[in-house]
Design a protein around this nucleic acid. Structure first.
Lengths: 104, 104
DNA sequence: GACAAATATTCGCTTATTCATATATTTTAA
DNA sequence: TTAAAATATATGAATAAGCGAATATTTGTC
């Protein structure tokens, strides 16, 4: 019962980092993106990006698909767009359409 | 420009604590509540509650009104109910009406 | 003014997060 | 099988966030 609360709290803490917010915004906008293209756009050290991706992936907010040497990520948590938009992040309002593209 | 992101991130981090989530849920449900009534319901040490209230107050999510020896709090951030509901917190769905009661 | 109730703040300590640097893994291509 | 590109993980140090215990502040009452 209290465990649900702890999980909700972790959810918000996971969102509570500028780089992770930028990753989510980027993915919501683009729908699907590989790390090598996020890297120059986000302009952070590669291990840093990778670690933040691991946090988001580890808790199920994003999913990865390997394609050859590249790994593509996309947002897999349906709450994400609504929450980021409700919080006032402009990124989360746009790109709603691209989400279906790139898919199977 | 990046400062807005840092502020958004802090917003989520501020939400990222079980006690603070419980405080917000309680206030959304009750509309307005004094610390002395939150205390038994949340069942945490008084200084702990006070510190978490200070975090929420300091960043403008809640507002306090002193009435004699008691201090009443209420949610002052309009995003809060939507966001907590979108994140799946059940508390945030109820009590929508009580918000106007207890007013001046 | 003295005291009690309600609330807030400070202090030292512990735990969690984050970062930078180095290194490892996986895949493609030669 | 060697090399290079893409991505991930490990390590140790720095910073932030948390708690309990003690103390301070404000208000009402006598």
């Amino acid at each position: 019962m209290q465990d649900a609360l702890k999980e909700q709290a972790r959810f918000f803490r996971d969102l509570g980092h500028p780089i992770r917010l930028r990753i989510l915004c980027l993915l919501l906008r683009e729908g699907r993106q590989c790390v090598c293209r996020m890297l120059p756009e986000l302009d952070v050290p590669q291990p840093t990006l990778s670690r933040h991706l691991a946090v988001l992936r580890g808790h199920g907010y994003i999913e990865d698909e390997r394609e050859g040497a590249m790994v593509f990520y996309r947002v897999s948590d349906s709450r994400m767009r609504t929450i980021l938009a409700a919080a006032g992040l402009p990124c989360a309002c746009a790109g709603q359409d691209k989400k279906q593209l790139g898919g199977m």
